[in-house]
Write a protein that binds this DNA or RNA. Structure first.
Length: 937
RNA sequence: GCCUGAGUGGCGGAAUUGGUAGACGCACAGGACUUAAAAUCCUGCGAGAUUCAUACCUCGUGCCGGUUCAAGUCCGGCCUUAGGCACCA
């Protein structure tokens, strides 16, 4: 069989002419199954080889469910608005719809060529006025419910594309499409308040069957964080500002505040002395693009305003700075800085020499009753030239430590350290690099038989010269002073306190871990969680602040300065009011134009003079000329498939109630924070309005992986590793392509294309077709492959159900291998097998069903084969016999064998006997039907 | 830096949830059929040692350690890689 083009054409025509896959949407008598693919953007390139992967997977599920007696909804459509069609229009002067229609036709032809069982009567195009009428209608509802607003705001403006982009369309400060630079710019924009649904969008994730990685991605993207808003008064003024923090427990450690450069208070509180410097800084920041502010701006910058804030818990005056590491768009645009416990604040404080106050310390060792308290130091002394550290080796009397000691009364930590270093090691020419975070340490001193709890301050010194004085040691101090390298320290310093101090010294920075509060009055002694809760209450009781939840998610900018999108159905009236179109005026149709190009930062529709100028009730007005973003139409299309021709409402509620949610939604993982989030938002909104019957539209979501080129790299024209599906179908047939793409590996993994692999898949298809034509179909029950058949039905059914198509195919190959050298098969098994294969290879199975098995109807609705679990069980089994966990023999057992029989069989094996000879048998472990393990000594 | 995955023969990948690692396929090698080729069928195929050849033995699922009679699978610590986020307070 060289190819299957005739057979495939024959059945594709049959399905189409007989409308085999048309769904009777009103038939509620059977259970429903809604299998949905993410609809494609009909690009000029046509289908690529990645499309059929996901589409085949859903098609398999749809076909199996039909045979299992479900009423299946399996539609397809096109996400037809988009940039390439617009660029085509600009270039040729033709309406983008001609280009789009042409592409849609190509896609449809290709999809039909692959044999997908779509109900084409439900086809949708988002660019069809019959469809976008309802996109506009939903927009209108959102507008009326105040979830869409026109606001003046900083947006991502892309000069090259001449339009505003949403956050998910900007990647590293460049446009997703084309990679052009994106800058911040203030513009009047339509904004959809997705943030109002942030909680629902996070919380509902618990209820749906999605990949955990995708859920996590959405959670992170929404970025909910719990914290507090705290109000700070500006010293000597009536002004105050509010900061957001997730760590209100560290308020006693706040040593300065930072306002974002755009903060409204900046101009009001900056003192005359600092005006020039502040203004200069603000100007610099505003000139920076998003790109410069993020990726190029690792080094923190900022300026002092000259003003001070009052810390509400202790009335301390702390300086107010402005810095662009504080974002205007998150929280309140102002922070309290706690450099001891926040990395960013730490960097900034170090750079500008601001105070650092530790309010949390780590606890090491195990607490004990009746501990004696004392204050002490651990000194790390570093020799830069030799890259070595000064240690004291107590050998078996305490191991390797750094210099340590107890602080005497009236002595500072640094003085103590200098004294101890001199006494214990004799070195005197040292200088302090850094004071390290304090540690709370519990230990037991053997020589004194006492438990201690010490407050230890770490001090990091460098040595300047070898100048050394005589050590001053007590009689019991017997140790060696040794310079050692990092490796030795990591291996030999076991004491937790000393090792932790060392870690602080090599890795200076903020202490962000949990610990015990210090220097924090009423929080002292509490851990992080308790301290946060206590502080919440304190703030609220005293009116200093309140609990607050913040989100990283930004509102959805819902306008593009483009032509080829849904017109926004509003008119800006002469008197400044905004008028939404009446339902009877929908759809608002895109006008045909002579010039599709945008001019001077305006939207293309600004050129449609006649279209945009309107008079409503005697008042003049101008239509909104920006259009909706590409993700608008795809945010509700799954609802429209259920009732695609309804011109009274977007979809009938009773139908939605029966058919929603989507039982299986399949598409690429790249849509996690774009399409999927927007679609969930709209559907949740429609649910709240009582217009959609379910909160979450997609009950189960599965991502297909990417198909890579034969070289393991992403397919691209420039790399010349693109595989064309048309060519594959021409060479091997649609069934072989479908089979191969499912056999390549797990559906959601990225997999390289192997040209030999599809040949192998075709060989299997050939084999099935050839063998079924050769084999005699026996009408009576000849059970010679009974076990294999039932095992195959079980495995394939279960693997399809879990979408493990590669292993299902493997089992069908095993079944076919079993038929090698056989010349007959009984009818039940033959028909059962063909049904199992049908979802993957629908064409040749229809053909075999018809010509070999002699049926006149389609196989598509035949009953899915059953298996008998008793007939899948092997009576005889080969199991391994291990001696001390190593396989030494295999024995044949009968599943009815009892343990004694199995033991007896195992101990008869020569090789087993050889390994246990002259050894004592400790025990024999027998796991029924699995393994025997003989443990010897 | 943070959050997810992933790491198994020459290659794509299996492994019933702790129980014979490498199913199935590809590639490769040998054989049968054929005048020959293709197609098909049969056999072998992780590495190493040993042997005329078997049998048998050792090692082996990214690395190091642990738990267990038994670890690809569980625990701790790393490394590499893909994707996402990235001053989010």
């Amino acid at each position: 069989m060289s190819n299957y083009s005739e057979i495939e054409k024959k059945w594709q025509d049959y399905w189409e002419e007989n409308k085999v896959f048309k769904t009777d949407i009103h038939d509620f008598s059977k259970p429903k199954y809604y299998a949905l693919d993410m609809f494609p953007y009909p690009s000029g390139q046509g289908l690529h080889v990645g499309h059929p992967e996901g589409y085949t997977a859903t098609d398999i599920m749809a076909r199996m469910k039909r045979m299992q007696g479900y009423n299946v909804l399996h539609p397809m459509g096109f996400d037809a608005f988009g940039l390439p069609a617009e660029q085509y229009a600009i270039k040729t002067g033709n309406h983008p719809s001609t280009f789009t229609e042409k592409n849609i036709n190509t896609f449809k032809k290709q999809l039909k060529m692959l044999g997908f069982s779509y109900d084409w009567d439900r086809e949708i195009s988002t660019a069809d006025p019959k469809y976008y009428k309802w996109t506009q209608w939903i927009f209108k509802q959102l507008y009326l419910d105040n979830l869409v607003e026109e606001v003046d705001m900083p947006v991502n403006w892309c000069e090259e594309l001449g339009t505003v982009l949403s956050n998910d369309e900007v990647i590293n400060g460049k446009s997703e499409r084309g990679g052009y630079p994106v800058v911040r710019k203030n513009m009047k924009q339509w904004v959809m308040k997705i943030t109002e649904y942030a909680d629902k969008l996070i919380d509902n994730l618990d209820e749906i069957d999605w990949p955990s990685s995708t859920k996590e991605l959405e959670r992170n993207w929404i970025g909910r964080s719990y914290g507090a808003e705290i109000s700070f008064k500006v010293s000597g003024t009536d002004y105050s500002f509010v900061v957001f923090t997730t760590r209100c427990d560290t308020l006693f450690g706040a040593t300065y505040c930072v306002l974002s450069p755009e903060h409204e208070l900046v101009n009001l509180i900056t003192t005359d002395e600092y005006k020039d410097e502040v203004q200069k800084y603000i100007d610099e920041c505003s000139k920076k693009s998003e790109l410069e502010r993020t990726s190029l701006n690792k080094e923190k910058t900022g300026v002092f305003t000259g003003s001070y804030a009052i810390n509400p818990v202790n009335n301390k005056k702390i300086p107010i700075w402005i810095a662009d590491y504080v974002l205007a768009t998150y929280g309140t645009g102002a922070i309290m800085a706690v450099p001891a416990h926040d990395d960013r604040d730490y960097d900034f404080a170090k750079k500008y020499n601001l105070d650092i106050i530790q309010v949390l310390e780590e606890e090491t060792g195990v607490p004990h009753e009746n501990e004696l308290k004392k204050e002490s130091i651990v000194a790390i002394i570093y020799d830069k030239n030799k890259d070595k550290y000064l240690t004291i080796n107590w050998h078996n009397k305490g191991g390797r430590l750094f210099v340590g000691g107890t602080i005497k009364e009236g002595e500072s930590a640094v003085d103590c350290a200098i004294r101890e270093i001199k006494e214990e090691t004799g070195y005197t020419d040292i200088s302090l690099i850094e004071t390290l975070p304090r540690i709370n340490h519990h230990y037991y001193a053997y020589n004194k038989d006492k438990y201690f709890n010490i407050e230890s301050t770490g001090l990091f010194f460098k040595i300047n010269s070898d100048k050394r004085e005589k050590q001053n040691l007590d009689s019991d101090e017997e140790f060696d002073v040794e310079w050692v390298d990092k490796d030795t320290i990591e291996k030999e310093v076991k004491d937790q306190l000393h090792y932790k101090t060392y870690e602080y010294s090599i890795n200076p920075g903020a202490m962000c871990d949990d610990g015990i509060h210090i220097n924090s009055e009423f929080l002292d002694g509490l851990d992080k969680e308790d301290a946060i809760n206590k502080m919440y209450n304190y703030l609220e009781d005293n009116g200093y602040g309140k609990k607050k939840v913040n989100y990283r998610l930004r509102d959805w900018i819902f306008a593009r300065q483009r032509y080829w999108g849904e017109p926004v159905p509003v008119v800006h009236m002469e008197d400044g009011s905004i008028k939404v179109l009446d339902d009877s005026d929908l759809p608002l149709i895109l006008p045909v134009m002579e010039d599709y190009k945008a001019h001077g930062g305006m939207a293309p529709l600004d050129n449609a003079i006649e279209w945009k100028n309107v008079t409503i009730n005697g008042m003049k007005g101008i239509r909104e000329t920006s259009t909706m973003p590409g993700t608008a139409g795809s945010s509700w299309y799954f609802l429209r498939y259920i009732d695609p021709d309804n011109d009274k409402e977007f979809a009938n509620y009773e139908l939605l109630k029966h058919w929603m949610p989507v039982d299986l939604y399949l598409g690429g993982p790249e849509h996690a924070v774009g399409h999927l989030l927007y679609a969930r938002f709209w559907n949740n909104y429609l649910y709240d309005k009582g217009l959609s019957p379910v909160k979450e539209p997609f009950q189960k979501l599965v991502h297909q992986g990417m198909i890579l080129g034969p070289n393991g790299e992403k397919m691209s024209k420039s790399k010349g590793n693109v595989i064309n599906p048309d060519e594959m179908v021409k060479l091997y047939g649609a069934d072989s392509l479908r089979l191969y793409e499912m056999f390549m590996g797990p559906l959601s993994a990225d997999k390289p294309w192997n040209p030999n692999g599809i040949e192998g898949s075709k060989k299997f298809v050939d084999k099935v077709y050839r063998r079924f034509n050769e084999l005699e179909i026996v009408e009576d029950d000849t059970p010679f492959i009974e076990k294999m058949y039932h095992q195959t039905v079980k495995k394939v059914t279960e693997d399809y159900e879990s979408m493990s198509f590669n292993t299902a195919i493997s089992q069908m190959m095993i079944f076919m291998n079993e038929l090698n050298n056989k010349n007959s098969i009984n009818r039940n098994y033959a028909e059962g097998f063909i049904k199992l294969l049908n979802p993957i290879c629908p064409h040749i199975t229809e053909e075999i069903w018809n010509t070999v098995l002699g049926h006149n109807n389609t196989i598509a609705y035949e009953k899915w084969p059953d298996f008998d679990i008793d007939k899948t069980i092997e009576n005889e089994k080969e199991i391994a016999v291990q001696v001390n966990g190593k396989v030494r023999a295999t024995i044949k057992i009968n599943i009815s064998d009892n343990e004694d029989t199995i033991k007896e069989k195992a101990l008869k094996e020569d090789n087993v006997l050889r390994h246990i000879a002259n050894k004592e048998i400790l025990k024999i472990i027998i796991i029924k039907n699995k393994i025997v393990n003989i443990v010897i000594k």
